[in-house]
Amino acid sequence: MADLIVLAVFLAVGYVFGRIAEKRHYKSIIKREKQYRHIAAISSRIPPPSQPADASMLVTGSVVISVDYFKRFLASLRTLIGGRIISYESLLDRARREAILRMKQQAESYGADKVFNIKLETASISKSAKGAIGSIEVLAYGTALIPVDR
């Protein structure tokens, strides 16, 4: 019985706080995506020949983000019947967008306006005992081109 109560409390707390955290995070992502729109993130491997020769520099952005207890519980139920796990989809989406934003932020601090050859890497760093994804790390990196005065 006590176990059930603890479970219910964890689920309720996870649901409420997780929802608030996710909403707030999405709001901030959308706001900052507008703010950093002037920095072009391009996944081409090599800049076009028309691109003037600028100084280049490696920029990175990373984030470790965790899913709440409620969503993890839902996901474990979902594995019984199969199908999309929507709660994890939004987790990964948020993490990728956040990592790209942080990379852009670093590029801006160097005065760059373009980032080429963007690579995204995802790693789950803390595996729980059951082997389910608890938290994931997303790393975004690329080469920022910094215009030099000639």
Binding site: G18, A21, V64, I65, S66, D68, S126, S135, E137
Partner: peptide, 16 residues
């Protein structure tokens, strides 16, 4: 944090 969800700043810092 795994109960509440959200960013694990300690780990982000560690990794960067």
């Amino acid at each position: 944090k795994n109960i509440f969800g959200g960013e694990l700043q300690g780990y982000t810092e560690l990794l960067s």
